[in-house]
Write a protein that binds this DNA or RNA. Sequence first.
DNA 1: TATAAAATTGAGTAATCATTCAAGTTGTCA
DNA 2: TGACAACTTGAATGATTACTCAATTTTATA
Lengths: 204, 204
Amino acid sequence: MARASIHNRQDSLERALHLFWQKGFHATSLKDLEKALDMRPGSIYATFGSKDGLFQEALERYARLGLAELDRTFQAYESPLAGLAAYLRALGGICDKELPSRACMLVKSLLELGERESIARDKAEALLAGMEARFVDRFAEAKKVGELDSRLDPVLLGRRLQAEIMGLRAFAQRDVDSAAVHALAEDMAQSLEALRADEVAEIV
Amino acid sequence: MARASIHNRQDSLERALHLFWQKGFHATSLKDLEKALDMRPGSIYATFGSKDGLFQEALERYARLGLAELDRTFQAYESPLAGLAAYLRALGGICDKELPSRACMLVKSLLELGERESIARDKAEALLAGMEARFVDRFAEAKKVGELDSRLDPVLLGRRLQAEIMGLRAFAQRDVDSAAVHALAEDMAQSLEALRADEVAEIV
DNA sequence: TATAAAATTGAGTAATCATTCAAGTTGTCA
DNA sequence: TGACAACTTGAATGATTACTCAATTTTATA
C-alpha cells in the first residue's frame, strides 16, 4: 500500500558519482544534480539527505568499484608482482578511456575538501588507506612467495606504489599525449618488476 | 598629486596565495579575502580586477617562488642528479613545515578547476609544463656530463620525476606520519640516484 | 473502489555568492 | 591653501546557493 519509486537508487548514485568525479564537490550544484538525476530537490533530499550525504555515498561507490577492479586484476595474475605491474600498465591507458576525470576521485576530494566538509574528507582518507593496505598486502604476499627480497619493506613499497599512482593520474590530468602516460606507466611498471628477488640480488 | 595606496600589492598577493592554496579556488570566498587582505570589495576589484584574476596572480606567484626554490637547490649541487635527489629529500620534510597545504597548489588547481575557470586552469597547466621542463633540462645536463646512461631518456625521466613529486605531495596531504613521508621521499631519491651511469651499467 | 502510505513536486526560504559604483577620504603639488 | 587625482569605502546588486515543506500524485492493498 505504497507508491513505488520511479528511480533506481544505484543508477541515481552512478549519475551523481559521474558529476562529482568530473566537477568536484564545490563546483557541482544541486541544479546540476537535479538535471543529471532527473529528480526534483525534494526527492533528492528524501533519498540522500543532503548534498554532503550524496557525495559521501558517491565516494564510497567510487572506492568500491575501484577496489573491485583492483582485485580483478590481481586475480588474473598468480604472481603478486605481476598483478601490481599489470595494474600500473592498465592505468597507462587512462587517457584512452572516456572517464569523468583522469585523476583519482579520492585524491581530488582529499585535495579539495576542507574543514567544513571534514566528514567526507575523512572518508576519502579512510578509503585511500584501504587502497594502500591492499597494495601492502600484495607486496607482503610477494615477499612470502619469495618474489620479493626479504630486505624490502612491504609497507614502504605499498605507500610508494600509492604515491606513484596518485602522481601518474594527476599527471594524466594534464593536457598530455596518451603516449606519454603510457610510457610513464610502463616505466613505473618496470621499476616495480625490477624488485624481483633475483634481480635485486645483483644490485644490492 | 595622488593618494598613496595603504596596501602593498605583493603582501596582499601573498595573503591571497595563502588562502587560495589552503582552501582552493571555490571554497575561498570574497568575504574570506576581504578579511585576509583587510580590504573592502571595491579595493580588491580596483587592484586585481576579479576573484579569478587575483587567483591567477596568486598561481603565478606560487610558481615563481617554487621555481626559485628549485633553482636554489640545483645551484647548491654541482651534480645534476645530486641536485634532483636533494630536492626530493627536501620535499620529504614537507609535513614538518607550516604550509597552507602539503599538496602542490598547481596540482590542486589542475584537479579542481573546470571549464568555467579554464583560463586559470590553463595557467596551472602551463606552469606545470614549465616545472617539467626544468626537470628535463636537469636530466639532460646529467646525461651531458656523463652522470646518466646515454640510453636513458631525459624527457621520460623528467615526467617521471614530476609524477613522483605530484604523488609524494598528494600522499603527504593524507593524515600520515611525517616519518612516512620522509621515508617515501628518501626511497624516491635513492631510485633517482640509482640512475647514475656506473650503477646502471651493472643491471642493463 | 476506497484508503492509506509512500514518493514526488516545485515554489519558496534565507543565506551567500561575486561584483558594482557613487560617495567619501586622503595625499600631493601648484 | 585649494584643487585634483588616486584610493578606499560599503551598501546595494542580481544571481546562485543548499535546502524545506505543504500540496499533489501514485499505487498496493484492504
